[in-house]
Design a protein around this nucleic acid. Sequence first.
DNA 1: AATATATGTCGTATGTTTGCGTCATAAAAC
DNA 2: GTTTTATGACGCAAACATACGACATATATT
Lengths: 110, 110
Amino acid sequence: MRKTEQFTLQEQELAVLSRVLSHPARLAILKFLAETECCISGDISNEIPLSRTTVSQHLSELKYAGLIKGEIEGVKVNYCLDHAKIRAVSEQFNEFFSSILNHKNPSCNL
Amino acid sequence: MRKTEQFTLQEQELAVLSRVLSHPARLAILKFLAETECCISGDISNEIPLSRTTVSQHLSELKYAGLIKGEIEGVKVNYCLDHAKIRAVSEQFNEFFSSILNHKNPSCNL
DNA sequence: AATATATGTCGTATGTTTGCGTCATAAAAC
DNA sequence: GTTTTATGACGCAAACATACGACATATATT
């Protein structure tokens, strides 16, 4: 039903990234990982006001999108931000906003 | 079901903005409005590969979020970007990304 | 070996989004 | 005043997302 394939790759890509950022729990996880730098999955579940399973799901979405990395350490899993990817995503948003703002045309006066 | 109220206002706000940007049609509409500066609703429906009703719905979401403005002109409606709001949103994304990137801590080596 | 701990996967219920046809409204053209 | 045109609102079906308990797995501890 969703007709995403009708749009440009740039639009699809930025839409997917936006979707990943469109849940407050995922933003909270990113912020928490930024503060702690590295931490085990359990710590994150304790910090986020949702069940462990739900947090695990959000973590795997963030990982799938490439925003975070996870490393198994025995029974535990250590998660941390992928700074390079996040920088790239930040750039992508910046470019989009710049591109739509730099078309200043005085004929518009609403 | 969505437990958004459990999170900070900043997180909720950015999540809502991200959601608005999370559909390629809405990104395409923003880009089209940037190129044409001002245009009537009908022009947008013709440009976007979705039905007129669906485009109208996306337009009202963008309008509700404040990213675009619409001005009635007789039977037609003239839409255009709200540059100030878009600049503000761009800033909000920037601040979020900066804040999570500026916690460089050498103890993380994944 | 048995138990405890950390984590991911699966199934499922519920809520949300998307897409579109049909209808309502209101200005413009005739 | 009737018809045409542009648009939004409404209602519905299909798809998708969210949240979570129960289960599976695999490493540690005893």
